[in-house]
Design a protein around this nucleic acid. Structure first.
Lengths: 343, 343
DNA sequence: CTGTTAGCGCATTCAC
DNA sequence: GTGAATGCGCTAACAG
């Protein structure tokens, strides 16, 4: 059926460009040309091939169900039309949503996206970068985990096009990034509680030292101080269990807090469940403010106020930035605006 | 710095195997040999190279920070040491967990895993398969969406090694699959309610016609009938909003049901939130049974009973099956056992 | 033990 | 407009 019958190279038995050329009665060069030619709005090829020849090629392609080998093309061209996205935790809804929008945007431009999860581990991130580098991806969008500035720096220095997402890294200002204005988000939170007449706010979050969380808390503190609102911040070990949340929330409320602010989605959801367990009515007994667009916030009755970041913007913009970078255009970092929902 | 200075081929300016060979003062063949040789437990190479030469190569690799080009290797070898996993929804915790375990298992064997999400769309699945096929992945693990038997069949016929996961497809018994004993899971649910003294059970789920859901309901019905327990099943449009859940649950309970069974995780979580909103106490007012290991089930007080499938087994076993398939070994389909938790 | 070399599938000059 | 020839980085076969 196919031309590649040389038993020495037991490559998959697929139609190659040569098979197409044979079937169409033209040369491989022509086939390649036709297949890679851009078509204008009328469907005409804007390359020097006879319309008739092009049709023969297309027919052969269809008959053989030929699919180009991206590997060979990439090898020859030096570009794979593939980008990789590395997030700290693909099971986090925020990143999963971004992944969806990113894929959407990339698909439209003919790019393939590969998703990987670093599991908040520097070692895993490092090994992922190596593997993806070896696969010749054209670029990477990285939401780095804590303490990964060395890896990300190295990645960029290896010549890989990199866009940093969601979390900023110290000392890497020269690498384009896209992140929320987290300082502003924190301030927003403080003002929201102020409007609701709260007097003492307990802030609860995991103690992962990532910039986004740090900035949210920093922004919150500054604005709360300015507004003269009392507050206390509690850091919990990463992925603490229910019991830890329970005692923490009890303690915080026992100390006189009338409001809770969870500056990250997972903590906010867990906190909500625990508040339920403790028989707390929201907003009856305490004011609450979560982060990101979690289903539960909308499902709750009444809806839970939260600060939202646009996963659509994150996905689409980060992709655009990376493509600009890959294609040699000037790219500058981007700051997204937080939005208060259900306030 | 590197050898590839031919401006005609503007491939990425990376060290190639040739650079390593030059630096080490040996031939490219030797470098390839050393780099691909397996090492026994003592770290010795079990291939005919002098220990000393091997060391020279390794040194050169380290100095140049050389990383092999998998593309070229894959092209030449006909194998990419890469598998793809396509799930209907990467933001579903069940699949996200499987993804984690799969990656773990694959990593140990030197395989790279690519995750993709079909968004429950046949068209998206089809385009993903094409793209992955073009990338020469060695095999795919597919959790198919509804009505995708044609695509999966075609994929398998194209010569791609395929393992079907989680959901079975009619007429594709010749393709190895791994799935839960969903009939049994359904029966388990019925018996759980029976033990708890429930008399009428409302079953609520999305109306996606996938085998897993169908079987769970089928198994439930059979066993409930055998036990003489009343039941009624309500199908909701896929991803229905809160309001739909609210009215449905109200209706079901209004009709005299004293228990709710949600045979899929997302519906179970949403149902739980809505039950909260309605002021229902669980298990005080109604008995509840969810599916899969969702955080909220454990966070709730008292814990919510649910039927669990081992994502670890799914991940590890599906990978093992695919590798066996790729390496030409005999592979037979696998059925996993459900486990009742918090009962 | 080690060097040499062909060719994987494709894109791209350069002739004609 | 089209065909032929070259080489991307690598592995595997073979020669020495």
């Amino acid at each position: 059926m196919c031309c590649n019958t040389n038993p020495k190279y037991k490559t998959m038995n697929r139609p190659t460009i040569k098979d197409v050329a044979n079937k169409a009665g033209v040369s491989v060069g022509l086939v390649s040309m036709v297949l890679n030619a851009k078509r204008d709005e009328n469907g005409k090829f804007n390359c020097p091939v006879k319309e008739e020849t092009a049709q023969k090629v297309l027919d052969a392609v269809r008959e053989l169900d030929y699919k180009a080998n991206r590997q060979a093309a990439g090898l020859r061209r030096g570009k794979m039309k593939t980008i990789a996205v590395i997030v700290p935790d693909i099971s986090n809804k925020f990143f999963a949503d971004i992944a969806g929008h990113l894929e959407e945007a990339a698909f439209k431009e003919g790019y393939t996206v590969i998703f990987c999860s670093s599991s908040e581990s520097v070692e895993r991130l490092s090994s992922l970068v190596d593997s993806l580098y070896s696969s010749n991806v054209d670029g990477m969008i990285i939401a780095p985990c804590a303490n990964s500035e060395r890896i990300v720096k190295k990645t960029s220095e290896m010549g890989i096009k990199v866009v940093i997402m969601d979390r900023l890294l110290p000392g890497l200002d020269h690498i384009p990034s896209i992140a929320l204005d987290n300082i502003r988000a924190g301030a927003m939170a403080a003002r929201s509680f102020s409007r609701r007449g709260c007097t003492k706010i307990g802030v609860i979050c995991y103690d992962t030292m990532i910039s986004s969380l740090r900035d949210r808390i920093e922004g919150f503190k500054q604005e709360a101080d300015r507004l003269g609102i009392e507050h206390c911040v509690t850091f919990l070990p990463y992925n603490s269990g229910t019991e830890v949340f329970k005692t923490t929330i009890s303690t915080v409320l026992g100390s006189g807090a009338d409001a809770l602010f969870f500056p990250s989605n997972n903590a906010a959801v867990k906190g909500l469940a625990v508040a339920n367990t403790l028989g707390l009515s929201i907003p009856g007994d305490i004011a609450y403010l979560g982060f990101d667009d979690c289903d539960v916030f909308e499902v709750y009755s009444p809806r839970i106020p939260h600060i939202s970041q646009s996963t659509k913007e994150f996905g689409e913009e980060s992709f655009r930035m990376l493509i600009d970078l890959i294609e040699g255009r000037e790219v500058s970092s981007k700051v997204l605006e937080p939005v208060l929902v259900n306030d």
